[in-house]
Design a protein around this nucleic acid. Structure first.
Length: 101
DNA sequence: ATTATGACTGAAG
DNA sequence: ACTTCAGCCATAA
């Protein structure tokens, strides 16, 4: 596994239960600013039963980037953690920040 | 080498 | 709040 992947995984793993973070923030705080798209690429190529909380990663607009059935799966995962998500996929009040912007 | 394509982003209108 | 658009960067064709 290359350095990039391990750094990203480690960062995603730090998102607390019941909270969410964004592709951009994760890339940034993992030491790879500008690699938001690659974070998404990694999440997409994750093994089936991965222990990584990939579902807690959303886009900067505060919504789920997946579509159709995939969106529904991620939405359900978040709902199970008590996070409010509209049917369209918008998350309310659960953003996690490493800094505090 | 060139083009197209993404689980992306931020600024602008 | 919504749409367009220019940056972004590895991968695949």
């Amino acid at each position: 596994m290359d350095d990039f992947a391990s750094q990203i995984y480690s960062q995603v793993h730090q998102i607390p239960y019941g909270k969410v973070s964004t592709y951009g923030d994760i890339a940034r705080f993992a030491g790879y600013p500008g690699y938001a798209r690659h974070v998404g690429r990694l999440m997409g190529s994750l093994p089936e039963g991965s222990a990584l909380p990939w579902h807690r990663v959303i886009n900067a607009k505060g919504e789920i980037s997946l579509k159709g059935e995939d969106l529904v799966r991620q939405r359900n995962k978040l709902l199970e953690e008590g996070i409010e998500v509209s049917q369209a996929g918008k998350i309310r009040l659960a953003r996690y920040r490493w800094d505090g912007r």
